[in-house]
C-alpha cells in the first residue's frame, strides 16, 4: 500500500517535471525540471530496491550530465526560446504523431499487462546489491564494458577537438 502511494507520488512528480520541461521557454527552467524528473526517478529506483542504480542516477545524471547542461546554458548566456515557422510545422505534424505513438505504446502495455504480474519492494539484501552488479559487469558483460570505456575515450577526444578554437 505504502509502495503504491509512493509510486504514484513520485510518478506524478516525474510526469509534472517532464511536462514543465516542454512548457518552459527558458532552457534553464527546462534543465531544472529535468533534474526534478531524474531525482524522482532515482527515488522510484529505490522503491524498486535498485539502490546502486539510484545512487549512480543521482551522481551521473543529476550531478554530472545536467550540471554540464546548466553550465553550458550559463556559458552561452542562452535566452528564452523564440517561436519560428519550424515550430508551427512541428506542432502540426508532431502532436498527432506523438498521440499515435503514446496510444500504441499504451495499448500494447495494457493489452499485454494481463500476462505480467507485479513487482515487489525487494529488500536491499539481494536485488540492488553492488557486489552482484559488479560481478555481472566484470564477468558476463566484460567485453561491452571495455567497449564503453573506449567509447568514453573517443567522446573525450571528440569533445576536446570540437571545443578547441581554430586559429
Amino acid at each position: 500500500m505504502v509502495h503504491q502511494v509512493l509510486f504514484i507520488v513520485f510518478g506524478l512528480i516525474c510526469v509534472a517535471g517532464a511536462i514543465n520541461l516542454l512548457v518552459q521557454r527558458h532552457p534553464i527552467s527546462s534543465a531544472l525540471s529535468l533534474v526534478v524528473v531524474m531525482a524522482s526517478l532515482a527515488l522510484i529506483y529505490l522503491l524498486l530496491g535498485a539502490e546502486f542504480v539510484a545512487a549512480i542516477q543521482v551522481i551521473v545524471y543529476a550531478g554530472a550530465i545536467m550540471v554540464l547542461f546548466v553550465f553550458v546554458i550559463m556559458l552561452l548566456n542562452a535566452g528564452a526560446e523564440e517561436r519560428t515557422r519550424g515550430s508551427r510545422m512541428a506542432l502540426i505534424v508532431g502532436v498527432p504523431g506523438v498521440i499515435i505513438l503514446a496510444g500504441t505504446v499504451g495499448w500494447m502495455l495494457v493489452s499485454g499487462s494481463g500476462r505480467l504480474g507485479g513487482v515487489n519492494l525487494v529488500g536491499p539484501s539481494s536485488f540492488g546489491e553492488t557486489h552482484a552488479i559488479a560481478r555481472l559487469l566484470f564477468k558476463e558483460f566484460l567485453l561491452p564494458f571495455e567497449i564503453t570505456s573506449v567509447l568514453i575515450l573517443i567522446a573525450i577526444m571528440g569533445a576536446v577537438v570540437l571545443g578547441k578554437r581554430e586559429n
Binding site: 509510486f7 517532464a18 516542454l22 542562452a78 519550424g86 503514446a102 505504446v105 505480467l116 507485479g118
Partner: peptide, 29 residues
C-alpha cells in the same frame, strides 16, 4: 505490490513526452 504495467506506463508517458519535446522545442539544448 505495484503492477509491473504501472512502471511501464510511466516509462511510456515519459518517453512520449520526450519525443514531443524533441519535435516541438526549437532550442537545441
Amino acid at each position: 505490490m505495484v503492477p509491473l504495467s504501472w512502471y511501464l506506463i510511466l516509462s511510456g508517458i515519459l518517453f512520449s513526452l520526450g519525443v514531443l519535446g524533441f519535435l516541438l522545442k526549437r532550442n537545441i539544448i
